[in-house]
Design a protein around this nucleic acid. Structure first.
Lengths: 203, 203
DNA sequence: TCCGCATTGTGAACTATTTCACAATTGGCG
DNA sequence: CGCCAATTGTGAAATAGTTCACAATGCGGA
């Protein structure tokens, strides 16, 4: 498959959010662009990488386009997700409704800290991270969320990779090393604030 | 000032993190690149937009480069940050150590929900969001973090903008409309998972 | 002092992404 | 049925970002 840029994929995800809320049966690239904060040409270009879904003069049929984008993004299947790190961020993530809504089910939480192990989080019992490998052997997951301190992140990731995890959402503020067949997204909130600081400092 | 790309600014922020942990008195672009997950040419190019800080044959003096990057990013001054939305994400953010470490001080938390107003979060009392404007008049902030539900985000942002906030870190899953002199960064975690889903679906 | 090695700084080449602009359709209406 | 208005799909042009490659140092040692 032709290489699609990350920015295109992110925009598809944004379009999808608005398609799901759309009231009218059709929508134009211009309207999607307005909602998603981009341009109509960009919307059409993004979609054109995957096929031609619209009707000239009319726009896109909302239900069809919704289905196509879900399909492109691979959201039809639903994912089991394990979370490592039951700190504050982990806690927020476990409860975050957006994940479940989108078909991402957190099925286990792990931590190292004896004080956290055994406690309940949103119906899940925090397990000792030493069970990570054996649990994943029984119930594999494609996706893991890493919300550990920076120091332990790489080590946890190595274990996840060995256990067959293929995609990692990383909240620890370090770049992670993984083999090329594993995908990592790092979310670093301090870094986001720093880009804001930069824009304040340079105006 | 010459327009600097967002990706360059983000990488500077990554370099800074490693410079602060560096042990040796100098560091080469190659080493910074290795740590930050990029290439040495990229490191040198990024830095070259702002001046020439290195010594040929030797590399960069860690303390000086650290200082220069902090300065470029505008981190020397320290920021007051207000947080709107005392939900789970807000709670995680308030406690997040990375912010304070970097000079971002959360000075107030607001919510709409009577059950949350008055409760203490990490030493701060959650205030009724109706006081937002008057509080900001007394104690202005340049930066706000919005962690409200999607529905109220735009309305909160309008009020923040009217109260002089110039930069917003947005955790609500909607693009926000702001005047051109206000900067917004949106962090959307479901979207990050969706890009992972895409990469799993297309291999 | 002079040589050789390491490493920067930077144009130029390359690659990627966005924007433009317009022909091709579609549906509605007279 | 034929025309008009709306809107897509897409090459081509423009812009932006990354990588290359090499001359220009600066230092340490003979």
């Amino acid at each position: 498959m032709r290489k699609i840029s990350d920015s295109t994929v992110r925009r598809l995800s944004v379009y999808l959010r608005f398609l799901e809320q759309a009231k009218s049966p059709t929508i134009s690239s211009g309207e999607l662009a307005r909602l998603g904060g981009t341009t109509s040409a960009q919307v059409r270009k993004d979609l054109s990488f995957f096929g031609s879904f619209g009707k000239r003069g009319l726009g896109y049929a909302v239900p069809e386009l919704t289905r196509r984008i879900r399909d492109i993004l691979g959201l039809e299947r639903g994912y089991r997700v394990v979370l490592v790190g039951a700190g504050r961020m982990g806690g927020a993530l476990v409860q975050y409704h957006g994940f479940r809504q989108r078909g991402f089910h957190i099925t286990a939480i792990y931590d190292q800290d004896a004080r956290k192990i055994g406690s309940r989080w949103n119906g899940l019992v925090v397990r000792d991270v030493k069970h990570l490998e054996s649990d994943l052997k029984k119930d594999p997951s494609d996706i893991a969320i890493v919300a550990t301190p920076a120091e332990s992140a790489q080590q946890v990731v190595d274990r996840l990779v060995r256990s067959g995890v293929k995609a990692i959402l990383n909240f620890a503020p370090v770049p992670l090393n993984v083999p090329p067949d594993v995908e990592v997204k790092t979310v670093n909130m301090a870094l986001e604030l720093e880009t804001l600081s930069y824009s304040l400092a340079n105006r």
